[in-house]
């Protein structure tokens, strides 16, 4: 591998092997390609959205006389609200499951259990939609009625309860179930990589299993948990068919969880309106897609700001 050039007198440097150059070049190219694809998607969204902003609102059938911003606001609200609810349910549950599989279940069982949870990821979104609308919604509807009757004074539980149970909470439960395997699978792998020495040291100091987990596993896995949650959030924000099938969306902006009046989400709205859209209406829908894109950007920036990803625990620091 070494060529004659290596013999010339220079400061000591790592050898630049051709294999290395090809490999790092390939890696760089792949990374740049991703940026290019993203730029292309962004360019597509922006270019297609321009007519939506320049055409007078009263000439666009889908806006029904409103401005673009009054059209998109309930959708933005619904998207954030449903995704937040879904993560609120899914993240603690996912950490619990991941811990159960990595540190509580008998070792022989653990892999099988992990496989079972992975099965949830195998269910296509349309099936979750049908299940959520036809099985889950009727099952939780009596509870919704009961909650609105007894706790209606809490704004979240305000009535009247939906007659079919197809509310934003039901949609969020379905979303939570859908992101659960994603978050679980990643956090599980991260927890399993906790250095055994750390764990054994904690146990040797007399800590209980929970104390050991709190002191070694959770701090080690924190960046992984955040990463996994971001993946889950991305899925929850952008889920289309399942939400469209489950949610009874009427465009209301409300925090009430149990009523028929719910905000739609951007992705679901695109799926529902796109087939009948024509001309500028299509551009309006794509412009809402651009808004969702921007939301993801902002949410990610905030998450990045809160947690510095390069943690001291990373093996490749």
């Amino acid at each position: 591998m070494s060529s004659s050039a290596a013999s010339t007198a220079r400061p000591v440097r790592a050898k630049q092997r051709p294999g290395d150059r090809v490999f790092s070049g390939g890696a760089l190219a792949a990374g740049s390609l991703i940026l290019a694809v993203l730029a292309a998607v962004a360019a597509f969204l922006v270019l297609q959205s321009i007519p939506a902003f320049t055409t007078p609102a009263d000439e666009v059938a889908i806006l029904a006389g409103e401005t673009f911003w009054t059209y998109v606001w309930p959708l933005v609200f619904g998207t954030l609200w449903s995704a937040a609810l879904a993560l609120l349910m899914a993240v603690p549950l996912a950490i619990g499951i991941a811990l159960f599989i990595s540190h509580y279940a008998p070792r022989r069982l653990a892999q099988g259990l992990g496989y079972i949870i992975d099965l949830l990821a195998a269910v296509p979104s349309i099936v979750f939609g049908l299940w959520g609308g036809n099985v889950l919604a009727p099952a939780v509807q009596p509870f919704y009625t009961w909650a609105t009757e007894n706790f209606g004074w809490i704004p979240f539980f305000a009535g009247p309860a939906s007659g079919t149970g197809r509310t934003i909470l039901t949609a969020s439960i379905v979303l939570a179930v859908m992101v659960l395997p994603i978050i679980t699978a990643l956090t599980r792998e991260v927890f399993l990589q906790t250095p055994v020495l750390h764990e054994e040291a904690a146990l040797a100091l007399g800590s209980t299993r929970w104390e050991m987990i709190r002191m070694t596993v959770l701090p080690f896995g924190r960046p992984g948990i955040i990463s996994a949650s971001m993946l889950g959030l991305g899925r929850a924000l952008g889920e289309t068919i399942a939400v469209a099938t489950v949610l009874s969306s009427t465009g209301a902006v409300t925090f009430a969880l149990f009523t028929s009046d719910n905000p739609s989400t951007i992705a679901a709205n695109i799926a529902l309106s796109f087939p009948e859209a024509y001309g500028v209406n299509v551009d309006v829908l794509i412009a809402t897609g651009l808004i969702l894109f921007a939301i993801t950007l902002v949410v990610n920036s905030i998450a990045r700001y809160i947690v510095s990803r390069r943690s001291a625990f990373s093996g490749a620091n």
């Binding site: 952008g238 289309t240 951007i266 695109i270 969702l292």
Partner: peptide, 10 residues
């Protein structure tokens, strides 16, 4: 991270 948020229909 932003790319994970591209809605499937987009």
């Amino acid at each position: 991270d932003v790319m994970t948020g591209i809605p499937s229909i987009v």
